[in-house]
Design a protein around this nucleic acid. Structure first.
Lengths: 177, 177
DNA sequence: GAAATTATGTCAGCCATATTGACATATTTT
DNA sequence: AAAATATGTCAATATGGCTGACATAATTTC
């Protein structure tokens, strides 16, 4: 491991300016590469990142409402509209009328959509696994903590709720833990 | 600390699917909030994220060439063009003819530009510091390792070079470590 | 039962930021 | 002198956000 990648001063507990800036920049570079894998796959389908998000989150919580998806993505109805329509037209997503509330259009992935979701997730999962494995120790646990604490305090509850719910769905639908 | 935020299975060393997906999603949510602070400041200036990147990297390596900036940002000359022109016109960046090569237009921040750079960095630095502090242990060192290993292997050298060079510049120009 | 609210969809236009291709100028290298 | 390099600029196109307005169907409230 190169020296540059190890923080230089952890003595006092508070991060030095140098180390803090290095983390900011590393996050920028890491995130850029992190999204580059799915980007390439998406371009083969004529899709963009917006499509990825929809496919991912719908696949993780099948039957979610349009409004739930909007709240999660924090975009406008109009922005979602185009991508969702396209995904439906091309057969990756389908809608089902809500049973208890027939105004709702519950969202589901088709088999084709689920296939795409997994294909997009694979390189990201591999990247995370590799990075965690190469970092040794309790890397995963600590990484999770740090990312969680980087979320705005007022958003943490909804993020936690999401992760919790999606994990429960994953269990019952056979994603082996 | 809530149970949900701690990885559930670290026994074997290999991350479970559940934990891996949770990390993918946490990275998405964390990055979104991470960029939201500068976004808000930028909008007050009529700037966007592209301006942020230019101001940040030029400020970290004053005198860099346009080509170096293009390589770092991995965007086209035309994309950079508008943003750079705007920053120059509004007095945040200025250019100086290269001494050894007079074709080059070396990039520097004005005092106003440096002020903006620091203002944009502050909330991100605070967020990182808080997250690391709240995560305990060797969080910073491990976080740095993980982010570094999330960068594509073929890009690691340039990322390491950048961090190294920028750190050296920071030292000499008085950013206290 | 009428009125208000909610969930969803759609039209139109605007903005920021990315792209490609083409072309121009000045300077350096061969 | 010719080729390559560093930079700048014009034009057209795409993606994915945004706002505002309006429409329909279903549910909730009074």
């Amino acid at each position: 491991m190169a020296d540059i990648i190890s923080a230089q001063d952890l003595s006092g507990g508070r991060l030095s300016d140098q180390d803090t800036v290095a983390l900011i920049e590393l996050l920028f570079f890491a995130y850029r590469d992190f999204v580059s894998d799915p980007d390439e796959i998406l371009s083969q389908f004529g899709f963009g990142r917006a499509h990825h998000r929809v496919v991912h989150f719908v696949g993780r919580d099948p039957g979610m409402t349009v409004q739930q998806l909007l709240d999660l993505l924090r975009i406008t109805k109009q922005s979602l509209g185009r991508v969702l329509k396209e995904l439906i037209d091309k057969g990756y997503v389908f809608q089902k009328e809500g049973e208890s509330d027939r105004r709702q259009r519950l969202l589901y992935l088709t088999a084709k959509g689920e296939e795409l979701r997994l294909r997009l997730m694979l390189p990201q999962a591999e990247r995370i696994r590799r990075a965690v494995a190469q970092s040794g120790g309790d890397a995963a646990q600590l990484y999770r903590k740090i990312l969680y604490h980087m979320v705005n305090p007022e958003n943490r509850e909804s993020v936690r709720d999401w992760i919790e719910r999606a994990a429960a769905i994953g269990e019952e639908s056979g994603e082996h833990g």
